[in-house]
Nucleic acid binder design. Structure first.
Lengths: 243, 243
DNA sequence: CTGGTCAAACATGTATACAATAAACGCAAG
DNA sequence: CTTGCGTTTATTGTATACATGTTTGACCAG
């Protein structure tokens, strides 16, 4: 049903990205077009396009002599990617505060944050799926607040950088006390960000969002240092050089 | 000689980009693959890849029903693109100041800035080509100072956004008094940036670079508002919606 | 046994053919 | 005269064949 009205290119793109993120290839491995094409049940032409896109995303790197290989990331790369996302999202927040945001949008954000509260405080235990969904929604709305399509698309782009996405380290299995604390802290930041934007406090909004992005880095360090058993549950983490 | 050891893809990429930037197509025009392929003397396959890249760069936009068209930019888009470049370059400068930069690299930057001084103060009048070249060199070195390949490639990427490049509005014909002032001012900023990085003044370095990027915006406004006759000398400016 | 060179297999870059789909045009009906 | 529909045209998406260049493996020489 999901494959029906998808182009071959989309199938190849999603398929290959998922193969890579799930660690089906060893990091640094060279990918043969014919082999992967057969694997994905498509021809070389759309696969090639998909590979081009993944090169642009940074998941693959081109080889000078031709072809591409799976990218390898250092811990510094992950930190830098998160930093860049924070900086651009911070710019979005600053612009939002500077230019002002419509009441509808502000209300929409407030509603989203209410949803996060409900997800966290669910009497039957935290509703993780809902949290992740609402969190992504918050970040999307934040990008929209900037009022700039260019900013929005840059945030989208930079969130594709491996493990830079706001949801990169939010995994079901991580519903352990330490993480719950982290989620509550993040939610207070969300509220503060909304307040800063509402009050047109540019500098505060930018600083808050930058700090907020650092949570991803904290989660990354926590996962790799203290919860190495969970590493395989985080898509893409197999691409990080183990030091 | 330049075409010899270039792949068809590169030829198509450079060729098409140059056609678009030089305003050979009207902004918003849909591009027929066969027509453009014939125009560039290549087949559809490499042209298609080139188009994909230009879509990623933002110079073309995909049409839902298939194919692509030349992008159109508003003045707000240009301003946003410049802002984003400033923010990321600013991050590079902050990181450089934070982490410290090798003496060789600092010396290299100082040499480049000396070169700019010589270009500006040339007894035979300003040496524009040299200025542009050295200016690009300075920005490349700044990116390198961050010590992060990811940051470097992101700066490169964002400088491809139409008219966001540090050299976008530096054109020979603009060697008029107002612009010369602007170049001298820019050079003082260059020196200040180098000083801030050398002294490890993170916040100052970031703020200076952000402010420095705004020069591009000033030049953009000056060109479009006060020197409309020069508009056709700036590659890519024809893509900006004339209001 | 090791290093180098040659050859064969293979992978990629490019061109092109074909099919499906969207755009354009004309014609007819209201 | 305008609007809607059907047909034709043209354009894109996909597959595949071919040629060039790279990698790999084997064999020979030192």
């Amino acid at each position: 049903m999901s494959d029906r009205n998808l182009s071959q290119l989309d199938r190849a793109l999603f398929g290959l990205r998922s193969l890579i993120m799930n660690g089906e290839f060893s990091s640094g491995q060279r990918l043969s077009e014919v082999a992967v094409a057969k694997m994905l049940g498509t021809s070389r032409t759309p696969l090639r396009q998909a590979m081009d896109r993944l090169v642009a995303e940074g998941l693959l790197v081109r080889i000078e002599t031709g072809g591409c290989r799976v990218a390898t990331f250092t811990r510094a790369d992950i930190a830098d990617a998160i930093e860049i996302r924070g900086v651009i999202e911070g710019t979005a927040a600053r612009m939002a505060a500077q230019r002002g945001v419509s009441t509808e949008l502000l209300t929409q954000i407030a509603d989203t944050l209410d949803g996060i509260d409900r997800a966290i405080n669910d009497p039957g235990g935290i509703n993780f799926d809902c949290y992740v969904k609402r969190n992504a929604e918050f970040h999307a709305l934040l990008a929209k607040c900037s009022g700039s399509d260019l900013i929005r698309s840059e945030i989208e782009r930079v969130s594709l950088l491996p493990l830079a996405s706001p949801s990169a380290f939010l995994i079901e299995q991580a519903a352990i006390p330490d993480f719950l604390d982290s989620l509550r802290y993040a939610q207070r930041q969300h509220r503060a960000i909304l307040e800063a934007i509402t009050n047109r406090e540019c500098a505060r909004a930018e600083a808050l969002v930058r700090e907020h992005a650092r949570l991803a880095l904290i989660n990354f360090n926590y996962l790799t240092d203290d919860q190495p058993t969970l590493v395989n549950n985080v898509p893409g983490l197999t691409l990080v050089a183990s030091k």
